[in-house]
Computed example of a mutant assay.
Amino acid sequence: MKFLVTGAAGFIGFHTADRLCREGHEVVGIDNLNDYYSVDLKLSRLELLRKHGNFRFEKLDIGDRVRLAELFRDEQFERVIHLAAQAGVRYSLENPDLYADVNLTGFLNILEGCRHNAVGHLAYASSSSVYGMNSPMPFSTNATVDQPVSLYAATKRANELMAYTYAHLYRLPVTGLRFFTVYGPWGRPDMALFKFTRAILDGRPIDIYNNGEMSRDFTYVDDVVEGIVRIQDCPPQPEQPGEAPAALYNIGLGAPVRLLDMVHCVEEAIGQEAIKNFLPLQPGDVLQTWANVDDLVRRIDFRPVTPLSEGVKRFVEWYRDYYGRTADHPCA
């Protein structure tokens, strides 16, 4: 099939586009290549994707309504996997306008492109951050999520509501995927695992918020991509007349890990103890995430399986290879 993958130079977008290309699909990837984090890292991902003869890249901002509409019209995609977004909980506290432009207006432009060009299924990235502080554990997609604690979370919840509206009004099949702390090779430099690895190799302290009394449902990127690829092949099928073709699923390991235990995995993988700097909880952070993936298992017969220790080991191996680092010879 012919796919559009937005955010193709991003972490999850890169892995997803690579997987689809390996399966023989035609993939058009778009990204605006912004400098929220290293553009060189994004270009390195694209360099690998361009080795696939069935991949094409267009530098395009999803906020550009006219050019995006032209792309949809010219390409006539069968499926769209929307992974472009302005990420980062803390960054949203300082740059709210950017989140509105990208995560709200940009997503509306994607919905319009799908609506006007008969796209068979839109799968889009949501986030575990929509659960906020007040949901019972483990997080279920049946829970009420109306108390986000960051603007980033609010925009992701807004995406879910917008997608449902388009499914209801225009019968556009949409599936939202609430990702839980995705990590792995080619990961984002603003994420904790990346920061911890770099700091430990450099012999610098790592910042541990809330004195380490928080936990995350860390989910390896290959497991996330497996879920994305399987779910895109399963457009929602309404069971009742008039029901909207819309669905939501969690993609998480289903096993929260304490932050200090994650740090220990990094120390083990590197072979070096971290210098720890304990700090209070930051605005926008939640204390725990924990995915209930029963609905996902029922729908696609798959649940994430990669243990954190193994995933962290693979990340550290990639990091050392990509940056030419060793514990003895850290780069500047």
Rank of each mutant, 00 (worst) to 15 (best):
R67C: 06
I30E: 07
G252K: 05
E267Q: 11
H52M: 00
S129R: 04
F107R: 05
L41I: 09
L33G: 09
P185C: 04
A8I: 06
G284Y: 11
V225W: 05
R198Y: 13
E317N: 12
D301E: 14
C234V: 14
N109S: 07
A143T: 08
V39T: 08
A246S: 15
S38T: 01
H52W: 05
L49I: 00
G271M: 02
Y166H: 04
T105C: 06
V182I: 02
F302N: 05
G176E: 04
Q240A: 12
A100F: 15
L108Y: 14
Y166E: 07
A192I: 05
Y220P: 06
R19Y: 14
L296Q: 07
R171P: 13
P236Y: 07
P241N: 01
L98C: 05
S215L: 09
K313R: 15
E75L: 03
A269D: 06
L260K: 10
H52E: 03
P283K: 03
G187R: 00
D74E: 15
P280G: 06
L308D: 05
G227Q: 00
I110S: 09
P236A: 04
H82E: 10
E317W: 09
V312M: 01
L41N: 07
Q147I: 04
L4I: 07
L281A: 14
E310A: 13
V149H: 12
S309K: 10
F218C: 06
H116Y: 15
Y319A: 12
R303C: 07
E75S: 08
I200S: 08
P148D: 07
D31T: 02
